Amino acid sequence: MDVMVKNTGRPGYLQIADDLRAQIRGGSLAPGTPLPSTAQLAEQYDASLSVVKMAVGILRNEGLVIGQQGKGVFVNDPGEASPADDVAGEVAELRSAVQELSVRLSRVEEQLATSTKPRSGRSSR
């Protein structure tokens, strides 16, 4: 089931969170069910890993899913929703997302630096 993030002006991570939330609330992702891996979700939604991690982070904050170190992310039982249950996992995900964004930003800055160098033969007042 390939569900592409649409160019609607709404950020992709919110679209992914909306879709997963609808699956959880609709029962197709029942309590205790593992979410697909970040890589699988990225492929399914044709999105980057950092976008998927941000979407899952939203669902964690809402208490809809809970991470279990080394096992994955699972749909939470609504009676047990507690956003503070997996702070360490969320911090690790945020660090990973920040690291990925830092690498991407470095590439963009490098491309800008090489594309905006003054060309020879021009005066640089």
Rank of each mutant, 00 (worst) to 15 (best):
K71W: 06
S115F: 08
Q111K: 07
L105K: 14
Q68R: 13
A113G: 15
A113R: 12
E100W: 02
L94S: 08
G70P: 12
V73M: 11
Q99R: 12
R95V: 06
S102A: 07
V98R: 08
V108Y: 00
D85H: 13
G70N: 13
S82E: 10
P83T: 11
E109A: 06
L112K: 08
G89W: 10
L105E: 02
P83F: 15
E109N: 05
E109T: 01
P83Y: 15
F74K: 02
E93C: 09
N76C: 15
K71G: 08
V87T: 11
P83A: 15
A113M: 14
L105M: 10
S96M: 03
E93G: 15
S96T: 07
G72Y: 08
V98E: 00
Q99D: 03
V75E: 10
E90N: 01
A97P: 04
S115T: 15
E90W: 01
E109W: 09
S102T: 09
Q69Y: 09
Q99V: 02
E80G: 08
K117I: 09
V75R: 12
V91F: 04
G72R: 06
Q111S: 02
F74Y: 12
V108W: 00
F74I: 01
G89D: 11
T114Y: 00
D77H: 13
G67L: 03
D77I: 13
Q69G: 06
L105H: 07
A92S: 10
A84T: 12
A92I: 05
P83M: 14
E100C: 06
A84R: 09
D86F: 00
A113L: 13
A113S: 15
A113P: 11
S106H: 05
T116N: 12
